[in-house]
Nucleic acid binder design. Structure first.
Lengths: 196, 196
DNA sequence: GATCCAATCTTTACAGTGTTAAAATCATGC
DNA sequence: GCATGATTTTAACACTGTAAAGATTGGATC
């Protein structure tokens, strides 16, 4: 079969990355539960078992997507921390913005997503810890060392919780979502408003 | 067939509640992903379609479990708020303790759990909002009204995030988990420790 | 250029799932 | 004692992930 026409070729050009991008689209359309080997194959114009040449299982595809996601998230936070505002608040805003922009991916990264309680999760837990570490490292520039561990867990819990509640539709978005996030995260810096 | 011997009877005595308790056990063993119509039937000693006399779908069983969970959680929080400490801190500790005691259920209540983005979730979102409302109502006793919305979202995010990170194994438990939770939640009341 | 090889993809098949439809069984009213 | 309605079963359909075996292809070697 000639290679220059549009007819479907037996050898796909770059199947591995096609599979991943198709899977990502699927993930954002229907959440982690919508990831399906057969549907991925279908959309890539290939039969389902073809994917097994590049990934051992559906979980492996999910893990690759999550890995990408962690890299993106980490980079996005780093950019915010190094940006014009140069502070933790900017990092937190970037964190929640990432979740809002990629809700399916964020759920995959931090939700059950995988066969819950199974092995593959070890790698994911490590990647999560890396995000945590990133936050912690920045905190060390601002706090006395003894306070860092609790402060880090405090901030991570707050940001993570806010991100999840946001993509779960439990927060009415409002006109400027970033501003709303900023309002909430600011409370972390000054504690609760004064009692009346 | 006589009814007084131990032989399996055609009519199960109280199948509906048996199904629910079996499902709950399954949920805590393997998380929301482990919920399976056929396995539920198997454990209840009944064939799978039997369950359809009491529930329209697997999602309906999950929804019933979640509903129970919200009632339990709400009651547990209310008890803490009315208990000897009578403050929000006690409520937050109870909240996280509930998640730690019922991780599978908590994930079902607040995770994807269901066919993500599907209809059934409307009821769940409403039940979540009820928990939120409970927290908000208590906050109104302590804050000037204008501050309540943001403070409530702030506290819910923090508590929810901490609960999830805890059951996801991202927080090293330590000797007294409740004390650790208390340490973190206390930071909400006084903001971050002073900069050095 | 012909031939072989390894990589790539397809077909086929198996075990499992949720769910529906029809048939069987039972408990209970008359 | 029998019919009725509630309960449960069996059989079947369409779907899933994945393993095994075969078909196809591009590229290296002669």
């Amino acid at each position: 079969m000639a290679a220059h026409d549009g007819s479907p070729r037996y050898h796909h050009d770059n199947l591995r990355s096609t599979l991943l991008s198709v899977a990502r689209a699927l993930l954002e359309e229907g959440g982690p539960a919508a990831l399906s080997m057969r549907e991925i194959g279908r959309r890539a114009g290939v039969s389902a078992p073809a994917a097994y040449h590049y990934f051992n299982s559906l979980d492996a595809i999910a893990a690759a997507l999550a890995e990408h996601g962690f890299a993106e998230l980490s980079e996005s936070i780093a950019a915010a921390l190094a940006g014009p505002r140069r502070n933790l608040l900017a990092g937190g805003i970037a964190y929640v913005a990432f979740a809002r922009a990629n809700p399916g991916l964020y759920r995959l990264m931090f939700g059950e997503g995988f066969q819950a309680y199974s092995r593959g999760n070890e790698a994911i837990r490590a990647l999560r810890m890396q995000v945590y570490r990133q936050m912690k490292d920045d905190l060390e520039k601002h706090l006395t060392p003894g306070n860092v561990p609790n402060a880090a867990l405090f901030l991570w819990s707050l940001t993570h919780g806010l991100a999840l509640l946001t993509i779960d539709g439990q927060v009415e978005p409002g006109a400027d979502p970033d501003a709303k996030v900023e309002d909430i995260l600011k409370l972390a810096g000054m504690g609760l408003p004064a009692a009346r």
